Simulated scan of single mutants.
Amino acid sequence: MKKWEYRLVSEPPSSGMIEAIINNLGKEGWELVSSYFIPEESTPGIKSERIYCIFKRPK
């Protein structure tokens, strides 16, 4: 049976870094299997946004 390792990356969309992160992880053998966007309110009245990406690669 194949074994996998997983990695979760989160980044605010405003950073502009998500594409570079995905490309760099792809070069390291990571495959993007899921991504989702979550608006967050970490401090009352202050809204922030994050993109979460889940990657996997064989162990």
Rank of each mutant, 00 (worst) to 15 (best):
V9I: 04
S34V: 00
P58D: 15
W30N: 02
C53V: 13
I22Y: 02
S48T: 11
C53Q: 10
Y6N: 02
G26T: 01
R57T: 04
K27E: 13
Y6R: 01
L32E: 14
A20M: 06
I54A: 10
L25G: 02
L32F: 12
N23E: 15
R7C: 09
G16P: 05
K59I: 11
T43E: 15
L25W: 07
W4G: 07
L32C: 12
Y6W: 12
R57L: 07
P13N: 08
W4Q: 05
S15K: 06
E28M: 07
I22W: 01
W30D: 06
L8V: 15
P13I: 04
M1E: 15
M17A: 08
K56N: 03
N23C: 03
W30G: 02
G29T: 07
M17K: 09
I54D: 01
K3S: 13
L32I: 08
S10R: 05
K27S: 03
L32S: 11
I38V: 12
K56I: 01
E19L: 07
E31F: 04
P44T: 01
F37Y: 14
V9G: 00
E11L: 06
K56E: 14
K27W: 02
N23T: 06
K27T: 02
G16R: 06
S10T: 12
I22L: 05
I21D: 03
P58A: 12
E28S: 08
P13C: 03
P12Q: 07
K27C: 00
R50V: 03
M17I: 01
E31D: 11
Y6M: 02
E5H: 05
T43V: 12
I51R: 10
